[in-house]
Nucleic acid binder design. Structure first.
Length: 433
RNA sequence: UGGGGUGUAGCUCAAUGGCAGAGCAUCCGACUGUUAAUCGGACGGUUGGUGGUUCGAGUCCACCCGCCCCAGCCA
């Protein structure tokens, strides 16, 4: 690495000194014999000021050759100036073009339509807003690992290529040698349960794939999920952990990524609600609440997106909706002893109409009951042999949940559509770039 | 998949059924403190496609295609 150059983020330490910066040109303005180039290097933005009378003939000529997105080597004096984007600017002495950039660069500093931006995602990612989002994403990923490491959870990686097992929604399939069809994992949970029996408390952090024909601002066909699984946790312990986890993630970003949130124009006061205790609302009460607000819903129905929005709107902070009807939920959730029509589960609804960011439950640990559920749902029992064995060889109380990374980032950043919070979104009808 | 919307210059958008336009970008010129600079000029079109109605269709109708929003499924 060339250590003789300075990163833009470090300019504040070099005020008054002469430094060299490598960067890309984002914006050019000229005013006769005075030129301005706003450049970025991934760590920040800097304004370069070129005065014809103060540079060589060659340097001034090079300035005239600059185009948007060409890469440059700039040498000059650093000074703080309130007029400069980023707060610091360089009085350029020497200037060289490293890589030219043709005049047809598609992204302009103005409004563009979403389809155009996604087609040009590689370039769109260079914009200040996208850089800010990716930095928050990075902070959250690191925060996930820090949270669980501090609590002695073991990170485990579960397979992406699987035989059909897991959720009910659509699967992506591919040929797998002589073994027939393999499917891209929709969840690591079932493997997580096996690992919890070996290691106690574990979590997975990986991509998941769902071939659902969903076209909403909350769905991707490929997204990242964090799935902890804890031996000897019941559903109440599970929710306590989720609450600590979500609160930690939000506070971590508020603490360390204020600059990025400012770029995103996020009203961070809306996130302060996580410091309060999260609401725990029984499913039956949630239905009554939705009904009182005019929703057409009866006991037994799953809550729709508008119902969820109504419920969260009532409390203005994260809400657990607990103990859903058995029929609305997956076979592996534990029957609720207090009301066998329901299961010991919870969805965590994020504020501001964001909807579900976590789905979790205590797992059914009774061999006969889970076998009956599998059969009742018409699932291929033989495919679940090793999973059922977890209830046969030393069954144990255990619980876990799945947190959708992109939904969480979108909520914290205040981004409307989750396609913007992953570098290269995979959507129904979009596989490129 | 269902409901709603939309498709016009490289981009973002105008145009009572009657000559297809603007801003930005690009090019040329002016300008020593710009902030998506400003000012003057130039360049830029098979109006998504195929049919139809009409003297005349970007505009109305039918079908097809693309995209957007909402819903379902979920994280």
């Amino acid at each position: 690495m060339n250590t003789s150059t300075t990163r833009i983020a470090d300019l504040s330490h070099h005020v008054g000194a002469t430094v060299t910066v490598r960067a890309w040109v984002t914006h050019l303005r000229s005013k006769g014999k005075l030129g301005f180039a706003v450049v970025r290097d991934g760590t920040g933005v800097m304004q370069a000021v070129v005065v014809k009378a103060e540079v060589s003939e060659a340097a001034w000529e090079q300035f005239g050759q600059l185009t948007q997105e060409c890469s440059v080597l700039l040498t000059g004096d650093v000074r703080a100036d309130a007029r400069a984007p980023g707060g610091f600017e360089m009085g350029v002495k020497e200037l060289g073009i490293i890589g030219t950039s043709p005049l047809d660069y598609p992204i302009q500093p103005k409004e563009h339509g979403i389809d155009f931006l996604l087609d040009n995602r590689t370039f769109w990612l260079r914009s200040q807003r996208q850089v800010a989002i990716m930095r928050v994403r990075h902070e959250l990923e690191q925060a996930v690992h820090d949270f669980f490491y501090a609590r002695d959870f073991i990170r485990c990686d579960t397979p992406i290529l699987t035989a059909a097992i897991g959720e009910r929604a659509g699967l992506f399939s591919t040929e797998y040698f002589d073994e027939g069809t393999a499917y891209l994992a929709q969840t690591g949970q079932l493997y997580g349960e096996a690992l919890a029996a070996a290691l106690g408390r574990i979590y997975t952090f990986g991509p998941t794939f769902r071939a659902e024909k969903s076209k909403t601002r909350r769905h991707l066909t490929e997204f990242w999920m964090i799935e902890p699984e804890m031996a000897w946790y019941d559903q109440d312990d599970n929710m306590d952990l989720q609450e600590d986890f979500v609160r930690y993630l939000v506070e971590r970003v508020l603490e360390r990524r204020q600059e990025e949130l400012k770029v995103l124009e996020r009203d961070t006061s809306k996130l302060d609600c996580v410091s309060q205790r999260f609401v725990r609302l029984d499913y039956g009460d949630a239905v009554k609440l939705a009904q009182s607000k005019g929703a057409d819903i009866t006991w037994g129905d799953d809550l729709g997106a508008p119902d969820e929005a109504m419920i969260v709107d009532e409390y203005q902070r994260p809400v657990f909706v607990v103990n859903y009807p058995k029929e609305a939920k997956a076979f592996y959730m534990k029957e609720n002893p207090a009301d066998p029509r329901t299961v010991r589960c919870a969805d965590l609804l994020a504020p501001e109409g964001r909807g579900e960011i976590i789905g979790g439950s205590q797992r059914e640990d009774d061999y006969d009951k889970i076998l009956a559920r599998l059969t009742h749902e018409g699932l291929p029992v033989e495919a679940y042999g090793w999973y059922l064995d977890l209830r046969k060889y030393g069954t144990f109380t255990h619980s876990g949940f799945g947190l959708g990374l992109e939904r969480t980032i979108a909520w914290i950043c205040g981004i409307e559509h989750i396609r913007e919070v992953i570098p290269f979104p995979r959507l129904m009808g979009r596989i490129k770039p």
